[in-house]
């Protein structure tokens, strides 16, 4: 039976506001956060620094094109 991450079609995005000093700071913090959660294929899709911090959308790809997709694995009826 696939795990929950297997069922993510392609990517997990996290959208948040980070209190920080610059756009670069905001990017680094969110990349680090997502990596700390165990994701490896991480990028920042969008970052906008204004005033007290940065509005950031970070992304971790779970399945890229050409991968073997977890959501195609057989599932239990209850799943």
């Amino acid at each position: 039976m696939p795990g929950i991450l297997d069922l993510i079609m392609d990517a997990v995005d996290i959208e948040t506001f980070v209190v920080c000093r610059s756009e670069e700071d905001g990017r680094k913090l969110v990349v680090q956060l997502i990596k700390d959660w165990g994701f490896t294929d991480v990028d920042i899709v969008f970052c906008q620094f204004q005033g007290p911090g940065a509005r950031v959308r970070g992304r971790a790809y779970v399945h890229r094109s050409g991968d073997v997709y977890g959501w195609l694995k057989p599932r239990d009826k209850e799943a």
Binding site: M9, D10, A11, D13, D41, D43, I44, V45, F46, R59, Y61, R64, S65
Partner: peptide
């Protein structure tokens, strides 16, 4: 909404 993002594939959301 990923139109301008060039860092990776377009995501389904």
């Amino acid at each position: 909404s990923d139109e301008a993002y060039s860092g990776g594939p377009i995501s389904v959301p």
